[in-house]
């Protein structure tokens, strides 16, 4: 039994069982089908977007940053990680609204909708990473076990950050229907705040702290360090990233829990 008191009303209900894994899979699969018409050809478009961006940016900026030996690899890692963040948070923001037809019909843990909304972006990132790792292996630059484990850890943190932002955004979007446009602007500006097309080192060191407060920055920098440069970030740096992730996820969960009870009334 689950119980609670909300705004003076006390509610005690028997918990309904939901096959969380089955529902997540069904949502992810049907989202893929809706978005790409269930075809691999359709999915290729999702990969082409950051890939084409890479070609264009590389053509221009690799001349400017010719002195940076790993510029191209750093650029493509940064672009795909950024694309995941931008796509996942954008779809996460509208996830409850988009699946309102399910929320209005029955009761189930609605966070499932938010988490599942990142599935398409996650798939694109997974395909890129598999390809990128294959390249590193063929080029004789395969990351070691520690670097691989850390890269996985950073991706997990990135996913948690994305979920935290999406949880808060999904319920706030029901209250502020132009929040997706506001987020679009933030994402556009955030692309330049994160050191994706430029090496962080070109900026004075006193700005680095501020840039690291933008969540994609540490993830992109740390992933580059372990996958491209073969350098392991310090334990302190990893702890700070974990702390930042915990705060974002906690805030996301708190905002979500505070607002979700009224969500169906705002659909």
């Amino acid at each position: 039994m689950a119980g609670g008191t909300l705004m003076g009303a006390s509610l005690t209900t028997a918990s309904a069982r939901v096959d969380v894994a089955g529902m997540l899979w069904t949502l992810a699969r049907t989202d893929f089908k809706t978005r790409y018409h269930g075809t691999v050809g359709g999915f290729i478009w999702a990969l082409l977007k950051p890939a084409l961006m890479f070609v264009v940016l590389m053509s221009v900026f690799s001349f400017i940053f010719a002195s940076s030996p790993n510029y191209r690899l750093n650029l493509i890692v940064g672009l795909f990680l950024w694309d995941f963040f931008a796509e996942a948070t954008k779809t996460g923001l509208t996830s409850l609204h988009a699946k309102g037809y399910l929320l209005a019909k029955t009761r189930f843990p609605s966070w499932i909708l938010v988490v599942a909304s990142a599935s398409n972006a996650l798939l694109t990132l997974a395909v890129f990473l598999a390809t990128f790792l294959a390249y590193l292996v063929l080029a004789g630059r395969a990351p070691g076990a520690a670097a691989g484990a850390l890269a996985l850890f950073y991706l997990l943190m990135f996913f948690a950050i994305t979920v935290g932002i999406s949880l808060a955004g999904s319920v706030l979007f029901l209250r502020y229907r132009d929040l997706n446009q506001v987020w679009d602007v933030a994402i556009q500006a955030g692309f330049f705040v994160a050191p994706i097309i430029y090496p962080l080192e070109i900026l004075p060191e006193r700005f680095h702290f501020w840039l690291y407060l933008w969540p994609p920055t540490p993830v992109i920098q740390f992933c580059r360090a372990v996958l491209v440069d073969g350098v392991l970030p310090t334990a302190r740096a990893n702890l700070l990233l974990a702390g930042m992730t915990a705060v974002i996820l906690a805030v996301g969960v708190l905002v979500f829990r505070g607002q979700v009870a009224d969500a169906t009334e705002k659909l």
């Binding site: 509610l11 209900t13 028997a14 918990s15 309904a16 929320l103 009334e265």
Partner: peptide, 16 residues
């Protein structure tokens, strides 16, 4: 459980 009540109490002893 789709809407929440403002006042009063509700106890449901089985899944719906």
């Amino acid at each position: 459980g789709i809407y929440r009540a403002d006042r009063g109490s509700l106890r449901v002893g089985a899944p719906i």
